Simulated scan of single mutants.
Amino acid sequence: MANIQYYDVILKPVITEKSMLGMTDKKYTFLVHPDSNKTMIKEAVEKMFDGAKVSKVNTMNQDGKTRRRGMTSGKTAKVKKAIVWLTEDSKDIELFQGL
C-alpha cells in the first residue's frame, strides 16, 4: 500500500440532499482515497477539522457505471465513500456551514 498522509485521505465532500439531511444528526459524507481504511479516515477527520470527534465511520465501495459512446463502451472510475458520525459533544464541521 502507498504511503498515504492524512490530508490525502479525504478527497472531497459529497453534496446531495440525503447527505445534507444527515448533517442534522452529525453525519458527514466524504469521497475518500480507495486504499484508506476506517481508522485512517477517523484520524484524518479529527486532524483536519478542529474540535471534531468521530464516533464511527461507515465506508462503501461503488463500482464504476457502464457508459456507452457510440459503439464503444467503458466504465467510469470507481469511488469509495465514507459516512462519518460525530459525537454529541464535538463541534460541527465548518466546511458545511454555508450550505
Rank of each mutant, 00 (worst) to 15 (best):
K78C: 11
T87E: 07
I41R: 04
E17I: 08
A52F: 01
T87M: 05
T87Y: 01
R69C: 09
M40P: 06
E43C: 09
T72W: 05
M20W: 00
K42I: 05
V54M: 03
K91P: 02
D50E: 13
S55M: 06
K12I: 00
K12W: 05
V54F: 02
D50M: 09
K56W: 10
F30R: 08
D92T: 08
V32W: 04
S73V: 11
V79L: 10
R67A: 15
M48Q: 15
V32R: 00
D8L: 03
S36C: 13
K12N: 11
S36V: 14
Q5V: 07
L95Q: 06
I41H: 02
R67G: 13
M20V: 03
V54T: 03
V45T: 12
R68A: 11
V9Y: 09
V54D: 03
K80S: 05
K42P: 15
L99H: 08
I83F: 10
D92W: 06
L99M: 14
G22C: 03
R69W: 12
G98I: 06
T16E: 02
S36G: 12
K91T: 08
N37E: 04
K91H: 10
Y28T: 10
F49W: 15
G51N: 06
V57Y: 02
L86M: 11
Q62V: 06
G98F: 13
G70K: 12
T24Q: 09
L95S: 02
K65H: 14
S55C: 09
K75V: 13
R67T: 12
K12R: 15
V57M: 02
V45Q: 03
K42M: 14
K26V: 00
K47L: 06
K42H: 05
A82F: 07
T29F: 00
T87A: 11
A52R: 08
E43T: 10
Q5F: 14
V9G: 03
V14T: 09
D35G: 10
K18Q: 15
T76C: 11
M40C: 07
G51M: 02
D89V: 04
E46V: 07
T39N: 07
I15M: 07
N37R: 03
K65G: 06
T24W: 03
D50W: 01
S36D: 09
T24F: 12
S19C: 04
L21T: 15
T16I: 08
A77I: 13
G64E: 10
T29R: 02
E43Y: 09
D92E: 05
V79A: 06
